[in-house]
Write a protein that binds this DNA or RNA. Structure first.
Lengths: 339, 339
DNA sequence: TTGTAGGCGTTATCAT
DNA sequence: ATGATAACGCCTACAA
């Protein structure tokens, strides 16, 4: 596979390995034009490619970072990842991507392996369950940035959506449009899933703040596949809320499935707003009002912090990035025609 | 960062480095229970982590592959990538992901860098423009698999959609449903973009085969952002085809934008079928008939071949994976109500 | 059953 | 200006 080494180049160019090394590292200062030319020739002729692994061993740096995510198939993840890769590309760094499926065991294994592989840093969407391991990473002064979730008791850079604000934006909008009976759909409550928890809490808070009723049957926190069934049940009993807040794209899809199956009209029969600006939001009928996460900014911020950590000690900080309400037609005022 | 080495463990356990090495590589056979225990203890106590880089240097294998794609944001890419990562996970391999944006320069740079990094293999969505480089990789016996596109004159494993079949499936379906005036929307023609070329050709072929008219104004190969404008122009002149075949998700979106803006009804005013099973296909109204690419299978096949290459010489092959028509409502028979 | 010595392909130090 | 030599951390004969 890889056969020709620096020694071969040196021999062919009639110089020592050290000189070749100098050349490769562009320390031309004391090098004669002549030598330089001979080395260049030899490299070309032999199709020599320096072995970065050997260099890494010596220099203790691999120019590689590990990115550990739940599932690359989620749009947020993909976008964050794209931003990370773009920034790494500029620094001639590479990105190793790992999917955990939110399984702490897999997460642990990946962190251990990447650590052993001497990656220069980690960007992690943490499961939150490997507290000891996270701590050890910090102690070892490994550069680490968390994205999407934080973990209690871990003092580390974290880049998160401002979930309170996201919900507030959506709720204020709905209320402003005249909706009073508002429901929420979310996956099952799980305390370590920060965004979910924060969103559900903020939802309750927004209702309380506006003196609107909090009906528990309208707060659907349920496995995604059961959500549309729950909505069916409400419809059956004529107890649908006027508007629904979907806390992410997955739950939004379930609501839309339900709406289609029941042939309801949005926003007349039920208004809809969601976090995550799905790609079809503007071509759906009616177009969907959404609260967009600044995914690229999140990726950029995370990478920026990681490089700062690699550059030297900095004290950990938490960043809350601002969501953006994109008004379309799915939650227009009651009575307005949707479109 | 990483301070404790095998020597430290050896010293603490009162054995030699080789013994520790034996232990790490699970060659326990001739090792006393006692020694084993001492080593385990030392490792635990020192929180020792073997340095995989050093190991790689010796063993000439990094257990890492490079995956070079156009853009991870494309759904097909994401899904293929997920499949690749899953399979690599089973083999304790890692995946480095690189975005080229279809820029040959970036592609070249990535291949060079990953090669220097001694990755054990490549899975590439090739731009097709670095022919010399591809050839050198093959000559160097680097394991390589192409996905989505092949490159003329490069003898290498390739995993592609059966594009002819995909178009045929869609066209037969449309024709069977009674459509005779059928148009196509695609990004601009570019010979090296295999899927696009094959799909456009197959489209013409299907019309010819069915003795249907080929109207050039219905074959829209245009920058995506101009597509809906072109459709507008046709509508203006009352020259819309009865049905449109969108060759991918991007062009589909443009058609849907047009349809929404003009308030047309699918399939009554215009029927629609597309390659790529977009996530909202079933919740759109009407639900969208699509031709799905077997993205996961493509990723699995590519990875399988890559591992086979790493296992030993095999002769390159081209794989054409079968698309699948998913019938929904957007191209139902003329006259039928579209649910 | 365990230890010694050399090598993997670079880089860094110090001579020359 | 260039070269010799010793690391880097691990693996592998081979020796003991």
């Amino acid at each position: 596979m890889q056969k020709v080494t620096m020694a071969d180049v040196a021999k062919l160019a009639n110089v020592s390995k050290s000189t070749v090394s100098q050349y490769l590292n562009k320390r031309y200062e004391y090098m004669s034009e002549e030598t330089r030319r001979r080395i260049a020739g030899a490299i070309e002729q032999l199709q020599y490619r320096p072995n970065v692994i050997a260099r890494s061993l010596k220099q203790k740096s691999t120019a590689t970072i590990g990115v550990i995510v739940f599932n690359i198939l989620h749009m947020l993840t993909t976008q964050v990842l794209r931003a990370i890769e773009d920034m790494c590309q500029q620094h001639d760094f590479h990105v190793i991507v790992c999917n955990t499926d939110d399984d702490p065991e897999k997460e642990k294994k990946y962190i251990d392996m990447l650590w052993a592989k001497q990656v220069d840093g980690f960007i992690i969407f943490p499961t939150g369950k490997n507290v000891d391991l996270y701590k050890r990473m910090i102690e070892a002064r490994l550069p680490v940035v968390f994205v999407d979730r934080t973990v209690e008791g871990i003092d580390v850079d974290a880049v998160l959506l401002d979930n309170e604000r996201a919900v507030q934006l959506g709720m204020h909008y709905l209320i402003e449009q005249g909706y009073k009976h508002i429901g929420l759909v979310a996956p099952p409550f799980a305390p370590h899933v920060i965004p979910r928890t924060e969103r559900i809490n903020a939802f309750r808070y927004a209702l309380r703040e506006a003196n609107l009723p909090i009906k528990e049957e309208w707060i659907i926190t349920e496995q995604v596949k059961h959500i549309s069934g729950r909505l069916d049940a409400l419809l059956q009993r004529n107890k649908l809320p006027e508007a629904i807040f979907a806390i992410n794209d997955l739950t939004l899809m379930e609501v839309l499935t339900f709406v289609k199956r029941r042939q309801l009209t949005i926003p007349h029969d039920i208004a809809l707003i969601s976090i995550d600006d799905v790609p079809f939001a503007s071509i759906y009928t009616p177009s969907l009002t959404t609260i967009a996460q600044p995914a690229f900014e999140m990726g950029e911020k995370a990478t920026e912090r990681l490089f700062m950590q690699m550059g030297g000690e900095i004290s950990p900080q938490m960043f809350r990035l601002a969501p953006k309400l994109i008004e379309r037609d799915s939650a227009k005022k009651r009575g307005d025609k949707g479109e």
